[in-house]
Design a binder for these strands. Structure first.
Lengths: 336, 336
DNA sequence: TATATTAGTGTAATCGATTACATGAAATCT
DNA sequence: AGATTTCATGTAATCGATTACACTAATATA
């Protein structure tokens, strides 16, 4: 009992050639019904299973896509991957996951390793520390379709699936205004990422459109973590006039801000309204659930997968599609 | 300018054969230093990159492992995957992710697809609805090492990496007792999973060891979500005597319990102490942070990867290793 | 000097599947 | 009957790399 059955094994048993077996298994019309049946029966009996590796080598298609994210255990990214996997699996694709850990060199190595593995497509959310983009060109030169999600790099020939961060910033800010906020501060994130720039642009525009000004010091740039949120609030609370609302470009900073506010004896939302960003799972579990912008990560992943599938279908025309996902404001107690 | 460079292309340029090129690239000692240098230089100049697919077909090793989890976007599983990836990547392995979605049929299909892709190893956290285990035997018959993490199936020839759930249940319960709890209820999870059975066994033993009894109705079986936690508390609060502590086998049920307790006007931890399980990110962000059992998922993933690496190193002797990870109780306000 | 080593390359098979082309037999047409 | 299609299958190349074996020329040994 061998553990690897090939079409040659089947062929030998039936006194025919491997070519015939292959044709029978692939429903090639040139095969007689009788042999087809014999082959299928024998394949079943011997528990034949196609070696995708051989197929991949022959066809040049591995039916595998590479996904590179900074960290897989961030809810946002793992949800995206879930979306990608669920969309691609039924089509026979496998998903290989790599982490760049926000490191340009690791990202580059990931790309090369994935190319060597002969992936059919590459989906990436760019590391925030990546300054040199040659490795992206390298992938494109190999004619492997590249799709960016969430964080993108401006270049020709790549499709993107991103959130409308501008709109998200605008809507979040407008929501605060509509609910009575007059002095709205903003916690921004790593300025190297354009998503934060766009969220801020939306915030600014909303203020302008509603004739609210943005005093010096009301925009605080920092990391997207709890500590940064606390630090920012300490700074903000020294200003005059004091803000009565905070739009944070990250949920973690929003959480830090809330903790710090509480520590300083201010109430959320009575004294300061807060809106976060990302709809992290914890935001809805808090005693004062946090209003936040949902990015529909799973849909984002599914869209990225769909764009990829279109791309490989029309292999002739290298399409370049830019899908923009609408943000969904999850209104909760922290901003009301 | 071709986009796929093979060793044949290099050979042609240098007027040698592909065999020589292959040997030169693999540091085969039979090659003269001069040709080796020429080959390496030319390979570099032509941007040669090895086709891993061809190598995999030839060698029978794909340098790929399959990981099957119920859902990738659960923090526990994505952390495990992170651990696996970070341990395996430096060794040249790729990680293919599949989701069983707690469905036996999907799990089976995942297995077959992964086998067809010629994976070198399979790491699984079994779907809770899997009753038939033939697909595991199938994988083993192909001599593909199988490693279970967290949720396992008892069978010969497979290694496991699991948490000491019994100890975790014991420690959590003991902690409540030490902190003054006298009447401790337990919210269990899906009884099909042995992890919940063991957590409960630990709980029971801790009670016995400390001469505390467990009145009728103090153990509530249910799902591991917020709703189940709420429902359980509603039941518990009709009992006499009332529990003064709850050990929940899941953080989500613990959260639901806390919400329901609050709704019923009881304070945590003053009236009822609560301990959860899993150290979900949200537990430490609550106003009353939740005491919980940390399962060190990343370490669990790394251990699974290490066990796999050992397994493939000693390919001769099929070792069967059972790694048990110690639980870490994260003591927070909800139980003090 | 004749022979045995040895170093460095080439030849060709192999991994498992697909497929253009060749072949032979049966069926159809004139 | 003889020519022509048609149908089913076989032959062999191919994808890209590795490697056992063969071979040649140079060097070492007897």
């Amino acid at each position: 009992m061998k553990d690897k059955i090939t079409i040659y094994d089947i062929a030998k048993k039936l006194n025919i050639t491997a070519a015939t077996v292959s044709r029978a298994l692939n429903n090639n019309p040139k095969i007689s019904e009788s042999t087809r049946k014999k082959v299928l029966a024998m394949a079943d009996e011997m528990h034949y299973e196609q070696n995708k590796l051989a197929l991949a080598l022959k066809s040049g298609k591995s039916n595998t896509v590479g996904v590179v994210v900074p960290f897989i255990d961030r809810n946002f990214f793992s949800s995206i991957i879930r979306g990608i996997e669920e969309e691609l699996y039924p089509k026979g694709y496998h998903v290989i996951i790599c982490q760049s850990q926000e490191d340009e060199q690791k990202e580059l190595k990931n790309f090369n390793a994935l190319l060597n593995a002969q992936i059919d497509g590459l989906m990436v959310s760019v590391s925030k520390n990546t300054k040199n983009f040659d490795h992206f060109d390298h992938v494109l030169k190999k004619k492997v379709p590249v799709i960016f999600f969430d964080r993108k790099v401006d270049m020709k020939g790549v499709s993107t699936v991103t959130l409308d961060d501008y709109k998200a910033g605008y809507e979040a800010t407008k929501h605060l205004i509509v609910n009575g906020a007059k002095r709205i501060a903003h916690l921004s994130g790593d300025w190297a990422l354009d998503i934060y720039q766009r969220r801020m642009a939306g915030y600014k525009q909303a203020l302008v459109d509603h004739n609210i000004d943005c005093p010096e010091g009301y925009v605080v740039k920092g990391q997207s973590d709890i500590g940064a949120g606390k630090k920012a609030v300490k700074k903000l609370m020294k200003l005059d006039p004091l803000p009565d609302a905070i739009f944070s470009a990250s949920d973690f900073a929003a959480l830090g801000a809330i903790q710090q506010l509480k520590e300083m004896g201010m109430r959320v939302p009575e004294d300061v309204k807060v809106v976060g960003f990302s709809n992290e799972p914890f935001t809805k579990f808090m005693e004062v659930p946090i209003t936040t912008v949902d990015q529909s990560p799973m849909e984002m992943g599914m869209m990225a997968a769909k764009v990829f599938l279109e791309q490989v279908k029309n292999t002739s025309v290298p399409i370049e599609k830019n899908v923009v996902i609408a943000p969904k404001l999850k209104i909760r107690k922290s901003s009301l």
